[in-house]
Amino acid sequence: MKARRTTSGLPRAEGEAAQRRSNPLGAAPGRRSRVRAWPAAGSRTRSAARQRAQMDELRQGIRYRRIFVTLLGVIIAVSAVVVLLGTVGLVAETRSRPLTAAEQNQYKDEEIARRWQAWPATGVFPEEVKYVGLDRAQQYARRVGIAPETDCGKGVDTSVAEVLRSHNCRTMLRATYTDQTAAFVITVGVAVLENEESRVSATDELAKDDRVGVLPVAFPGTVSERFGRDQRQRTGWVGAGPYIVFSTAGYADGRTRAAVPPEEILHSELWPAAKSVGNQIAYFLADPPKVPPCTQGNVC
């Protein structure tokens, strides 16, 4: 009996032997191998390294977060303390309390020093100013007009201007009055110094000369229209706070100083009236204000 042949023409036995020789594991031809492919040892090591790196990053991030939270907490706590201390200090500083003697004096000085600006011109130079006339009778001088504010050097004689400028005189205010009988004309000038110390220094240097001082201000069409430099009979000044209040007087009829005998001036009502008017305006400017007892009014 002949051996069976495979489709390739070889005997079956010989074909199977040939297949076994080509497949030493003996797996049946045409079947998939059941042997698992083992992963390389290096891939497992790399995976573990990546996991450790990720864990290290996570731990480092947690540490940074704790540090950040701690610093933020410290900053918030310090800020809260600063705000609290500032609030306490502000309350202590702004609460009403009694004024000290130094603060009361400062209040007075500041109030007096700003009056020439805070008051209207009619407050510095009232419409009527009382003075004492003959037989000590009380009379009233009436304001003729108020001159525009001017530079200190332009409102006084040259020798006086030099003194005022050397002590930083700020400005000059002037107004003209007439006495109750309209026989005398009086110009009052207010020189504004920086403070009372400057005023005292300036007045110490002013010459004792009744021929120089404030320049007259004449208003056309009034009783003062003839009042000029030559018509000044006498001049003088008085200090009050940071102000030097000058005054000068003459006759409304235009008589010059040279035309009037000295003895007539000495016994005339002209100069006492002019001096009294100047003193009254100085008193208004430097009259001590009422000082509140507390920093925020009358209640401490």
Results as ranks from 00 to 15, higher is better:
residue 253 D to R: 13
residue 126 P to I: 04
residue 72 L to K: 07
residue 229 R to Y: 01
residue 205 E to N: 10
residue 113 A to L: 03
residue 238 V to G: 01
residue 90 L to N: 09
residue 251 Y to F: 15
residue 130 K to V: 08
residue 223 V to N: 02
residue 198 S to L: 03
residue 244 I to N: 05
residue 232 R to W: 03
residue 180 Q to K: 12
residue 195 N to H: 04
residue 214 V to F: 02
residue 296 Q to D: 07
residue 116 W to G: 00
residue 23 N to V: 12
residue 70 T to A: 15
residue 98 P to N: 06
residue 25 L to S: 15
residue 82 V to W: 14
residue 32 R to K: 12
residue 28 A to W: 02
residue 279 N to P: 00
residue 259 A to P: 00
residue 63 R to N: 06
residue 246 F to M: 11
residue 212 V to A: 04
residue 21 R to I: 07
residue 221 G to K: 11
residue 140 Y to I: 10
residue 197 E to F: 03
residue 232 R to N: 09
residue 154 K to W: 01
residue 236 G to I: 08
residue 285 L to N: 06
residue 203 T to C: 03
residue 276 S to Y: 04
residue 148 P to A: 11
residue 208 K to P: 01
residue 152 C to T: 10
residue 138 Q to R: 09
residue 160 V to C: 01
residue 112 I to E: 05
residue 283 Y to N: 12
residue 50 R to H: 09
residue 195 N to W: 01
residue 27 A to G: 13
residue 205 E to P: 00
residue 252 A to L: 07
residue 31 R to S: 14
residue 191 A to W: 07
residue 257 R to N: 05
residue 95 R to E: 04
residue 280 Q to S: 15
residue 295 T to H: 05
residue 237 W to K: 07
residue 178 T to A: 13
residue 100 T to R: 03
residue 152 C to Q: 04
residue 168 N to C: 01
residue 105 N to M: 11
residue 43 S to M: 09
residue 136 R to Y: 14
residue 102 A to I: 07
residue 118 A to E: 15
residue 215 L to F: 07
residue 176 T to F: 09
residue 106 Q to M: 02
residue 257 R to L: 02
residue 166 S to V: 06
residue 222 T to M: 04
